[in-house]
């Protein structure tokens, strides 16, 4: 299929492995899905820190269930990415380990307190879910199918995250202050989650032209602000003065992008931030630690593991 045909036909769940897709489409879709899969892995690893920090058995249980979900999402997405025939799962995991694999900015910041749990589980996951709901209409069918299951599960994460925020903001004055301080620290990162404005986004135009994306970064960020700012305020959080949020003529909210630290964002997107090294390194060491499991599975597959081939 040539690019012109792809552009013409582009629509929700329009293309699949049976279609002969041009190189540029397959490369763009692989980049996007691999980024998404990597983010699920890195988010899951970050989140598991909270199991130890969680203040009650219920929270610990819910957190382990969430981590299990996220790692499962990564597996679904690596499979969806593999259907494009550009990279194997092993190659993508290797890239993540050696620092070439890219992932969401918010997962480059190591966490060390329970106050950070709702920042990830409510705001970051809530933002992710905004985006993921729109990806149910992506043009690459295996990606859309992965979204069906992921979105089914995510509602629990976001509600549990808000439940933690609510609990903290109903705690002692000191707890509320610590939560506010943590929010002040995370808020700019959360706003940058949606990436730079459309003008600066390199991959946005092509992704939209071929139906991989259906909504722009700006639209996602602004709809997120409209939904999550009232939620934050409802629980008693104050929105920091900077970056400035303003109301547009149509009543929707937007952020003054110049108030955000894009140098830090770009350092992160090159995996060169201090936290990037820490997060990538700690996951790599765990991948190496279970290398023997992968090796034994591989040797099993190549010896006794396969069922007899059906005659063609």
């Amino acid at each position: 299929m040539d690019l012109e045909t792809v552009r013409k036909r582009a629509g929700p769940r329009e293309f699949g492995p049976a279609d002969d897709m041009p190189e540029r489409y397959r490369t763009a879709a692989t980049r996007m899905i691999q980024f998404h899969a990597n983010s699920e892995v890195m988010g899951g690893y970050l989140d598991k820190t909270f199991t130890r920090k969680a203040p009650s058995l219920d929270r610990k249980l819910a957190n382990t269930a969430k981590v299990q979900d996220e790692i499962g999402h990564a597996q679904l997405l690596y499979r969806a990415a593999e259907t494009l025939g550009v990279k194997t799962r092993a190659e993508m995991l290797e890239e993540l380990a050696n620092g070439d694999g890219k992932f969401l900015n918010c997962f480059h910041y190591p966490v060390d307190s329970w106050y950070e749990a709702p920042m990830i589980d409510f705001f970051v996951d809530g933002g992710a879910m905004r985006r993921q709901a729109t990806l149910k209409s992506t043009s690459w069918t295996p990606y859309a199918h992965a979204m069906d299951k992921i979105c089914f599960e995510e509602g629990f994460h976001v509600k549990h995250g808000e439940s933690i925020l609510r609990e903290l903001m109903n705690g002692s004055k000191a707890t509320q202050e610590r939560t506010q301080e943590t929010f002040d620290e995370w808020w700019p990162r959360i706003l940058q989650f949606f990436g730079p404005t459309n003008d600066e986004s390199v991959h946005d135009d092509f992704g939209r032209a071929v139906g991989l994306k259906t909504v722009t970064n700006d639209e996602l960020r602004n709809s997120f602000l409209n939904m999550y700012i009232p939620k934050a305020e409802k629980h008693g959080l104050e929105i920091p003065e900077y970056p400035r949020i303003y109301e547009r003529d149509d009543g929707t909210m937007a952020v003054r992008e110049d108030d955000l630290d894009w140098d830090e964002f770009r350092t992160i997107s090159r995996n060169e931030y201090e936290g990037s090294h820490e997060q990538i390194g700690s996951r790599r060491r765990r991948q190496e630690a279970v290398d023997w499991v992968r090796k034994s599975l591989d040797s099993w597959e190549s010896s006794a593991g396969t069922t007899p081939r059906a005659a063609d």
């Binding site: 219920d58 249980l61 819910a62 269930a65 969430k66 979900d69 809530g126 879910m129 905004r130 993921q132 709901a133 979105c151 089914f152 599960e153 995510e154 509602g155 629990f156 976001v158 509600k159 549990h160 808000e162 439940s163 609510r166 939904m227 009232p230 939620k231």
Partner: peptide
């Protein structure tokens, strides 16, 4: 294993975001 279902956190109103509400109703059905 109620801790891993969206309905458990019923002090939280999911209706503010369509996708969260959808997920909850799918989970309720399951």
């Amino acid at each position: 294993k109620s801790y891993r279902w969206a309905m458990t956190y019923n002090e939280i109103d999911a209706s503010f975001a369509e996708e969260v509400a959808d997920s909850e109703s799918e989970q309720r059905e399951a």
